[in-house]
């Protein structure tokens, strides 16, 4: 299974819908997508991970890299995830304290901190 990526704009947010497996092979594609969005001036990102079947530390690294990039522009990167096995990886690496994690895209888009 490969990685699928699609983006759409909701208000001032850009929603990146990710599907499939994010690992050492596919993570560079996600990195490119996030870099491209930031370069194009999208600084408020919502990454929808509901369709993600597998996530490893390479994927976490890409998300952290994306967060660094949007923060450099006073932006935000929010995650949407309800899958326990994916959430567990954020917990054991302490990243639940770093990323705002929402239960739905609507909630993430409406969130303001």
């Amino acid at each position: 299974m490969d990685l699928s990526l699609s983006t759409r704009t909701v208000g001032d947010r850009t929603v990146v819908e990710v599907g499939g497996e994010i690992d050492v092979y596919t993570a560079p594609k996600l990195r490119e997508q996030l870099v491209e969005l930031v370069n194009d001036g999208s600084y408020h990102l919502v990454v929808d991970m509901e369709g993600v079947d597998f996530l490893d530390s390479t994927g976490l690294g890409v998300l952290v890299g994306g967060l660094k990039r949007v923060r450099a522009h006073e932006g935000s990167l929010r995650l949407v995830c309800n899958q326990e096995r994916i959430l567990k990886i954020f917990r054991i690496t302490g990243l639940t304290k770093v990323f705002p994690i929402h239960t739905s895209v609507d909630e993430a888009v409406a969130a303001t901190d």
């Binding site: 490893d56 530390s57 690294g61 054991i92």
Partner: peptide, 10 residues
Amino acid sequence: EDEGQMGLAV
């Protein structure tokens, strides 16, 4: 490198 460290942490 960050990813390598995170891999061990996982």
